[in-house]
Write a protein that binds this DNA or RNA. Structure first.
Lengths: 231, 231
DNA sequence: TTCAGTACGAGAGCACTGCTCTTTGTTGGG
DNA sequence: CCCAACAAAGAGCAGTGCTCTCGTACTGAA
């Protein structure tokens, strides 16, 4: 083990500690109030020292966003893998509940990735793969169901412009050995949209006065959307 | 006209001017960067003077939120009123598109009311009525359709807990002379959830790489959700 | 083992923020 | 006509993100 790796190891540890402290602060105050100075204070260092590890506050936020996506992806993948492969509906429902469970345990992290985008902040390219993890799982379920011959097209006419738009996605599916029709893609996107909408509505407080039994309603809602998709 | 009203009139004008300036700044920088000092600067006054009109930055934000809800409500009501009363599906679609159109012309205002809730900020009670305006329009469409006998229950079994949860809403409908079954309420809430989810997904950039023809996709999507509701 | 180069933390400082307090000016109504 | 109510200004406090400089400690090669 050369000495450079010693330095870089202690550096990586420091980076983790800073992120840890930031995450703690995030959970209490929220993303908007995340203060680099407060993080430094909690770690017993001066604010300028933190800049050795994160060039700016936005870079810290980016790191937290990537971590959040990965945490969510991990939870989803784990939950989905525990379901019998041929139980497509069960796999789908497991994903839905895993996303919501994660969102409820880490509401600020959820808000960080799915809430109002921070102005003047453009998510760098390295957030894309972690952000895709959940989508990939959902796509795989649909592809598997199609291959198993249990998912059928709906014969719903789709506008030409939308159909052209969907071509690359269709190609993506057929590369994975699943011939998927446009309508099924539309329904899948709608279902993912709905998962996001339902969780955000609940978490952001837009269902107060409408729904109080969030657990039951979400489950029922997701069940209906799974049926809508065809699972 | 007594003199007190003169004072209060010029005061109301100042309040409007401040909100106007704040709104302009909001459109450029976003809610997080809304600076009371910058607003004051733009108006040629000193920051402390603004505090005569808004006790805190959050109060300014609250005022903007109320205005945003009302602007959205107005757009929706106007669009919906222009459709033949018996064209229930047309009325519903008009609402969907009006919400999206407003959101696209005022993305920051949309983010303000539907995005990540500001930590430590609790929306005061006077934001509730403006926030309900769109919901009221949607409810009226459903109620009208039920009364006209063109909307039927789906006979989808609903969990007991959810059913109990929905009782007050069912009562609200029957007060308006429409006997609405639980399943229809569920579908309506889901549709509103979906409107929100689709618009937020688009505006917050979570559909990049999936959909590019947003207009066409949204229209198709909403059409399918209208069918899902039964319209 | 020595020594140059680098990484690091500390501290001061800049321009900004929300907000408070005191002082000064203005203006409307008894 | 004068005084009270109101408005604006200005200074000031504590906080923010971020930059720059400076001394120290450590590392990797000679």
């Amino acid at each position: 083990m050369n000495a450079a790796s010693v330095r870089s190891r202690v550096r990586a540890e420091l980076v983790d500690e800073i992120k840890e402290a930031a995450r703690r602060q995030l959970a209490v105050e929220g993303a908007a109030a995340l203060s680099l100075r407060a993080v430094a204070r909690e770690m017993g260092m001066v604010s300028s020292a933190v800049y050795r590890y994160f060039p700016s506050r936005d870079d810290l936020l980016t790191a937290l966003i990537v971590d959040a996506y990965n945490a969510m992806g991990e939870r989803v993948e784990e939950a989905e893998s525990g379901v019998r492969r041929t139980d497509f509906r069960g796999r789908w429902m497991a994903v839905c509940h895993a996303v919501r469970d994660w969102a409820r345990t880490s509401p600020h992290e959820y808000g960080l990735v799915f809430g109002t985008p921070v102005p003047k902040y453009a998510a760098p390219a390295d957030t894309i793969p972690p952000a895709m993890r959940v989508t990939v799982v959902l796509v795989r379920i649909v592809a598997d169901a199609v291959r198993a011959g249990v998912l059928f097209p709906d014969r719903e006419p789709i506008p030409k412009a939308v159909r052209a738009d969907l071509a690359p996605i269709r190609a993506f599916f057929s590369e994975r050995g699943a011939i998927v029709d446009d309508d099924l893609i539309v329904r899948s996107i709608m279902a993912w949209t709905h998962i996001y909408g339902a969780i955000s509505f609940e978490l952001f407080g837009h269902r107060v006065g409408t729904v109080t039994e969030h657990d039951g309603f979400f489950d029922h809602e997701m069940r209906r959307m799974a049926a809508f998709v065809g699972l």
